[in-house]
Write a protein that binds this DNA or RNA. Sequence first.
DNA 1: ACGCTTCCAGTTTTT
DNA 2: CTGGAAGCGT
Length: 740
Amino acid sequence: MDTITGKLNEMQKKAVLAGDGPVLILAGAGSGKTRVLTHRLAYLVMEKNVPPQSIMAITFTNKAAREIRTRVARLFGESVWFPWAGTFHSICLKMLKMFPDSLGYRENFVIYDQEDQKTLVKDCLKELNMDSKIFPPRMIVHSISRAKDELIDPEKYKKSNEGDYRLSGVAEVYELYQKKLLEYNAMDFGDLIFNAVTMLENFDKIRGYFQNLFRHILIDEYQDTNLAQYKLANILSRIHENIFVVGDDDQSIYGWRGADIRNILEFEKDYKGCLTIRLEQNYRSTKNILAAANDVIRNNARRKGKTLWSEKGDGSRVQCMTASNDFNEAEKVASIIAEETEKGRKLDEFAVLYRVNAQSLRLEQALKTRNISYKVFGGTSFFQRKEVKDIIAYMKLALNPDDNVQLKRIINMPRRGIGKTTVTRIEEIAASLGSDMYDVAIRAGDYSILRSAENRVKEFTVIIEKLRKAAKELPVDDFYDMVIEASGLVKMYEAEGTVEARSRIGNIRELKSAILSSMEEFPELTGDEMTLEGFLSNIALSTDADEEKEGPYVSIMTLHSAKGLEFPTVFIIGMEEGIFPSYQSITESADRLEEERRLCYVGITRAMDEIYLFNTSERTLYGHTQRNLPSRFLAEISPTRMEYMSSGRGYGYGRKKTTRSTGFGLTRGGKPIDIASLKVEAGGAADVSTGQRVSHRKFGEGVVTSSEGTGEDKMIVVEFEESGTKRLMASYAKLKVLED
DNA sequence: ACGCTTCCAGTTTTT
DNA sequence: CTGGAAGCGT
């Protein structure tokens, strides 16, 4: 028992030892939630004798799943296999593969990523004669994905959007899109969850089987679940009712991807009699950092409410700096890192976080010129690279020739003289026959209209036939060799001879190492040999397979990708209105802005010892230069926690003289001004600004959360403690500004 | 069929 | 400023 609870604090212990029934753990940032989960798993197996195969443990990333596995293994002193530990997607895939024909899918179905989805949507638009200007494929993919997150099928979608021209159009596409997916024997990410839920709902026996199987369900990052995932867990936990969820409503930052913060906010309502435990002791950050984070998140209305505390010392104050422009900002970050490493600190103690990937460019340049090693996380992942996807398309098609999307991708890749006309003809013939394009291609000679292209098409089908045979006979690594050889893709890049082509060949070769390492891992995990099907599903569900980088490096990434990580020193750059919070979140809704604020909270709480917040007075993004006011989040942090560093002007090459001012004014046009007095709009005549506390004679006290327009027309949104959120006209509302 | 030019839009992205 | 897509000329 001591090995399980020995190093836990009281609250953590209570969570780990909780009895049967639903349990909600509200775990603040850095409060040891992974520790609680792993200890809970160990407790269930070691003390309660629950067989590992009857525990479902769900995380959001493969990385988190791996982490939990290795940490549980450490507790056990040996590796115990939890067959149902993984991501929502991998677990659903596993359930679906156990009963593949229940939903009309054939075995060997493949998984579509976003790019495949977009391609398929474009095909649907063309077939429906719809204009992709009016119905941008990106937006449609998004709408379809959101619908699936909310368990809305095409029929329901159509019904609930009757009369709306745009959404009815989306419904049309959605319907055809699903039809094609089934024909092509493919599922997208959303389908994995949606179909698993559908399968459980429609088949009593299957449902009963899983409901009995899972005596305990544990879910990490519960604040990021969507409705479909909520439903899945809800159905599966109905018999044993042991649902143990861990999350932090203040870290819900994926609403735009369908995550429904309601799931965690209303867990107690949905699971009556649940045990709720708050983990508020933070083991990560200094008091100043936590205070700043608490200051920011306090301004959100939609939250459970929780205040983190720490036994660590105050540490240094939040370092704020206004750079003249983005170039200068990057220079400063780089120079601080250089200075600190000269004092003996390691590069991997630093992370630089930003709102959008496009911001990384300047930073990379600045770090490069100083020879500071760095790694950009996120961005295009290895398996998304064009050349890698092409190879995978060959593999997918060999496994599943029904897949027209992959066929169209590679039929003329490398060039073999099959152009648009031929492809369209094959497509039309296939459509009128009700068969797949591959069937038509292989019989190209039978169709007079294809006669002229027959030889070139045959060249392609011969390759695929060879690969289909090989796919059944060869182990995956040998099969890969054959794909390289038969497709001629590497040969094509070799002929190109450019630097870019060489890097593409490098990536293709890298894919082989990915295969080899999965082949090693696979039998360990499942006891089976890795099949082509297994490999393809594996990589479809993994993103973090990037090549390891040698040596210590500075981590640079978006705020989103930083979730779950920690660093001694964190820089957040671009703390500006319109950047962070993003322009869209300011204009769209209060909810979106609250999510943005949570993102800020996530960012600040990544820091253990030091945090630097940067903004610029001028920034070039997407080719145009803009002047942004400092982020409202800066104004929300108590000045007593901040230290404002101003510096000599200069555009990157000026002297790096840094002067410290005792106050916290922001330097603009040479005059220091108080952050709290900044207006949201440049030049606005209104006298209330976002973040300010105001009082209204009828509504009571509240906080200004957003505003739009200027002068007479200025509208502000105020969240009143008693009366809720109100939209008011600033000039008529007769608000009194409260001093703190 | 293919390559070259022009035009346009452009968050965040655990799967 | 980028990358992707559509359009046009060979």
